[in-house]
């Protein structure tokens, strides 16, 4: 067989090692340059540390807090609150969203409630959550739950509605009951989109935990940021922000791991 008739091999051809490393290297260099410029600008006094501390100062604060043993406590407290609040929101939103996506009557019943809940920011729930749940951990979970639930539900409804109606029809023609259609057809068909939506919601759940930790908290990354703000410790504030980003990236990786397990064909 001549090269003229050979099938295209582009997709399976391995790129040279240097080319595979090119983009990560560019990212690394640009990030390093940003840190250097930032450090230089604060070192030369162009930026007052009160307004933006140098990266080295933030690193020192991280070391100090790690040595005091408080840093890990803040990370664990927030991660736990996000995990619990987000899991409860997902566990309620997925089945309910599938039902609402599948049944127009149910959607008509729940639509007004959902339209009311959807625009409410998690922070607006703080006064009521304090009255309903007190000042313990359940109040913090509830804030994360309320911030994550309505958008998650909408993602699931949309994902359910996007399942090919021909597949649903085919299953129904073959005698499948509504419950079977939901579990055997709609759930697998909408799962990739549901998981993509939940991945976005996980990030949003992290913004909710900051609101949750504004009141009656003594640890957590949100608390750390707010307490740092009260004492003008801008390095603590920026460190808290960095840790939220890093933790979100880490939880995203964990989420991707489970996504690959649940949807092996997507991987």
């Amino acid at each position: 067989m001549t090269a003229k008739y050979a099938p295209p091999m582009v997709s399976v051809e391995r790129q040279p090692r240097w080319r595979r490393l090119k983009n990560p290297l560019i990212s690394l260099v640009s990030f390093g340059a940003l840190l250097l410029i930032w450090e230089g600008a604060t070192g030369l006094g162009l930026i007052e540390p009160l307004f933006l501390p140098a990266p080295s100062q933030i690193a020192q604060r991280a070391i100090q807090m790690a040595e005091q043993g408080t840093l890990l406590g803040h990370i664990v407290a927030s991660t736990w609150r996000v995990t619990v609040g987000f899991l409860i929101a997902s566990l309620v939103a997925i089945p309910l969203g599938i039902i609402l996506g599948f049944s127009q009557t149910s959607r008509a019943i729940f639509d007004p409630i959902l339209s009311f809940l959807r625009p409410l920011p998690s922070m607006s729930w703080i006064p009521l959550s304090l009255l309903w749940f007190g000042i313990g951990e359940s109040q913090k979970y509830s804030i994360v739950f309320m911030g994550a639930f309505a958008p998650s539900l909408l993602y699931v409804i949309e994902a359910t509605k996007s399942v090919d109606p021909l597949l649903v029809k085919a299953a129904q023609n073959l005698g499948a009951r509504p419950r079977d259609v939901m579990i055997e057809v709609i759930l697998p068909g909408s799962l990739p989109q549901i998981l993509s939506g939940l991945k976005v919601m996980l990030g949003i759940a992290w913004t909710c935990v900051i609101s949750a930790e504004l009141v009656a908290a003594r640890e957590g990354l949100g608390f750390m940021i707010m307490n740092g703000k009260e004492y003008f410790q801008t390095d603590t504030v920026v460190l808290g922000m960095v840790l939220i980003s890093v933790t979100v990236m880490a939880t995203d990786l964990v989420f991707r791991f489970f996504e690959r397990r649940i949807l092996p064909w997507k991987a």
Binding site: P49, E230, Y231, Q233
Partner: peptide, 11 residues
């Protein structure tokens, strides 16, 4: 306390 915290921050 806020005034002292701001002083401690070098302002």
């Amino acid at each position: 306390i806020s005034a002292l915290a701001l002083m401690a921050a070098g302002s």
